[in-house]
Simulated assay, not measured.
Amino acid sequence: MVAGPVCDELGGMRGLLVSGFAAIGAGSAAMLALHAGSDLDPLRSVISEYAFQPAGWLLTASLTSLAAGSVLIAEALRRAGAGRWVVVLLLAWAASMFLIGAFPTDRPGVPLSLSGGIHRYAAFAAFAVMPIAGLLLARARIRYAGAVRVLSGVALAALVLVVIPYVVRMAGLPPADDDIPAGLTQRIVVVTELGVLALAGLSMLRPARRAVPGLAQA
């Protein structure tokens, strides 16, 4: 009598994960298409600048798809017994990604606007919360915990490199643009955080063989 509801729950969780991966795949494909059709230097041009390219609408589409994928994976993790903070952080990442797409940044050389401010701080929030969620999941010893821990550490280290130019500029010492591979460091953060999200989902498709103590408290 219990097997039916349990199978239904597992099937529902698997459906959420598959849908989440599909959304992440679509978002990643849109981002790659946007880069392929642009002549910007990905090492120095931050992703936000691609909004001003002819196919700039792909940026909003990509970020919205990634946000949707994160929501679906967060719900799957919740059903699997993941801790409240892990779920909250993944939802915060999703909300931040949506805001990044909904509020475009300002064109280079233009004073910071309300939209640009929301975009900037939403991006920082997204970059900060995913590594924390990853470290919590790694501490709960999910499958792929080691890889999740490494990716989270790399994301945090790259985030520091992303923030340093802003701190330097606030100190009145603007570095030359050619000296800052801002596009590279930002992309390292994005790729590693997507890796954390993907591994979190994969860990639910193939749960650890032994019990994971403390998963619900992570």
Results as ranks from 00 to 15, higher is better:
F21T: 02
A36K: 08
S96W: 04
Y121K: 06
A67V: 05
P108M: 12
L112T: 10
I100R: 00
H35P: 02
L112I: 02
V110R: 07
A55S: 10
G27H: 00
S70G: 14
A94H: 01
I100H: 02
S65N: 09
I47A: 15
A22L: 15
W57H: 15
A55T: 07
F21N: 02
G27E: 01
M13G: 01
A76T: 08
G15M: 12
A55H: 10
D106L: 08
L72Q: 15
A122H: 07
D39K: 12
A95Y: 00
W57L: 14
S70A: 15
G109Y: 10
L43E: 08
F52I: 06
L59T: 05
I24R: 04
S96E: 07
S48M: 10
G117M: 07
S45Y: 12
G116P: 08
L72M: 14
A102R: 01
L114K: 11
T105R: 04
S28G: 06
S45L: 06
V86L: 07
A23N: 00
A102W: 05
G15Q: 11
G27F: 01
A94Q: 03
A102Q: 02
L114W: 14
A76S: 12
V46L: 09
G25H: 00
A95H: 00
A76D: 09
H119N: 06
Y121N: 09
Y121S: 12
R79A: 11
S70D: 13
A55C: 02
F103M: 05
H119E: 06
I73K: 11
G20N: 13
T60W: 15
S38R: 07
A33Q: 04
M31A: 10
I118Q: 03
A74V: 13
A80S: 15
A36T: 06
L112E: 13
D41W: 12
W57P: 04
L63V: 04
S115C: 05
L40D: 05
D41G: 08
L40H: 14
F103G: 02
W57Q: 14
A102V: 00
E49F: 01
G81T: 06
L89R: 02
M13K: 07
V86M: 07
L90M: 14
T105S: 11
L66T: 06
L66F: 08
S45H: 13
S70Q: 15
L72D: 12
T64L: 11
G37P: 02
M97G: 09
L43R: 14
R14I: 01
G25F: 01
G15S: 13
V110I: 15
G25E: 00
G81V: 07
S48G: 10
M13S: 04
L72I: 06
S38N: 06
S113H: 05
Y121G: 06
L114G: 13
